[in-house]
Design a protein around this nucleic acid. Structure first.
Lengths: 244, 244
DNA sequence: AAATCCAACTGATGTAAATCAACTCAAGGT
DNA sequence: ACCTTGAGTTGATTTACATCAGTTGGATTT
């Protein structure tokens, strides 16, 4: 029996949270932050593969990642799983459930992951008395739209190499927000999850990573990636490359 | 000189609007609807290709389609245009500008199109006094997320045939909300716009439409489409077809 | 009515990525 | 220590779609 004890005796509040500036409380004064903090439930850490909510569950809350990572996916008409997003510390997920009052996606932890649960009903009430919270919520949802539109553009008009380069650069950018290096990254998701997200096959992902490695863009060791030539990857996203 | 005079002397208010149940006022009583109506500006009809807003413009308003149709698109890193959505009567567009206070997309009319402009600042203020408006706004944005996730799934994991079948069925469903037939439809966008939206080429769209016609799923006459076998199209979206 | 233009269609060919098929390797279980 | 399992990689082959190259036909111009 394996037992992972994670320090939980002294849960950090929003005031001290390392991720706070990327999360909900933007632009709140200390008093309002207190009120917000009251309703946020810091859940005990999720085990790898543990679910947060499932497609069809009634919508109750949105969630913020404190540490670890989350993938969200839906099952489409023909029963295949489609990954719709990866979420890292400081990012919010769960908005997809609001429109129809039930989650469209399933969200699971990719690794040992801590999240904050923010009950939507109460958040909404708080928003009625603190307009800046309401406003911030709207912006957060809108930002999710922007993120998804970028993914749509990536899926619709790019090669396998461009898709992977783009994902790696995006993950790199998002990890900088934590203490972490922007060049040495750990991919919490499998090759299969990457390929599904990007509309490719595992074989193609594997080959492109191999290609990037030969080109000295990356050093790859299983899920550990070191970005050796970030500009090289960025250049791939520009006009049709004539690099041999 | 061509001059199209469209009746505009007596602009319909929300109360009489044929599209109202799909639009903003959901769940409002008559009094609240009046307040909302005051701030909505019914603009004079747009000519085909006329722009509503452009990428980079400061975010001021969201828009509802009254009649006609809108396409929204962005220009990605390498300068290519990427169509991100088509909007039909009763649908709202412009939310993408909220997060960064400027529109990420450009929105143009595909045909002669009437829209309502809803200034966001004022809508937000109204939302502060009428919580149901606030709530409804959030749901509208969230619905946009759902729509885009469906597009992501379509782009990531489907064949050209499936993509087109899915788009045609979606347009058909949305036109039913107007007076219009669900089987005889007029596509306001060009083949190029369709192909761009679906991550295909014009040639492929043309060939798939030809194929659908030979299969008696459709009768195609330029932009006029008659759906002859809706179930046949739906079946394409299910498991891998072994139909010859 | 001839000339021009452009969106849409069609055919021939090329190619990026999917598919099919081993093979490797690390992790767990007995 | 051996067997199993599954993720990841690599190679050979196929294929769906892109690309290239006309052709068609309706609308607009002259």
């Amino acid at each position: 029996m394996k037992k992972i004890i994670v320090g939980f005796a002294k849960p950090l509040g929003c005031h001290n949270c390392r991720m706070k500036k990327f999360c909900l409380p933007l632009g709140l004064d200390a008093g309002d932050l207190d009120k917000l903090e009251e309703l946020i439930e810091r859940k005990k850490p999720l085990q790898p593969r543990e679910g947060v909510f499932f497609s069809g569950d009634p919508f109750t809350s949105i969630y913020a990642v404190r540490s670890g990572s989350i993938k969200s996916f839906c099952i489409d008409s023909d029963g295949r799983e489609q990954v719709t997003g990866f979420y890292f510390p400081g990012e919010i997920f769960g908005w997809d459930g609001l429109a129809d009052e039930q989650y469209q996606n399933t969200a699971i932890a990719l690794e040992t992951t801590s999240i904050c649960e923010i009950p939507y009903e109460q958040l909404d009430e708080l928003g009625n008395s603190i307009p800046s919270i309401q406003k911030h919520m709207m912006k957060l949802i809108s930002r999710e739209i922007n993120t998804e539109q970028r993914l749509i553009a990536l899926l619709a008009g790019n090669s396998a190499q461009q898709k992977l380069a783009s994902l790696l650069l995006s993950i790199s950018d998002r990890l900088v927000k934590q203490k972490l290096s922007s060049t040495r990254l750990w991919l919490p998701m499998s090759r299969g999850e990457i390929s599904n997200y990007l509309g490719l096959t595992v074989e193609t992902v594997s080959r492109v990573l191999g290609h990037f490695q030969r080109k000295k863009y990356l050093a790859v060791n299983k899920k550990e990636i070191e970005i050796l030539d970030k500009q090289g990857l960025r250049d791939l996203l520009l006009s049709p490359e004539e690099v041999e």
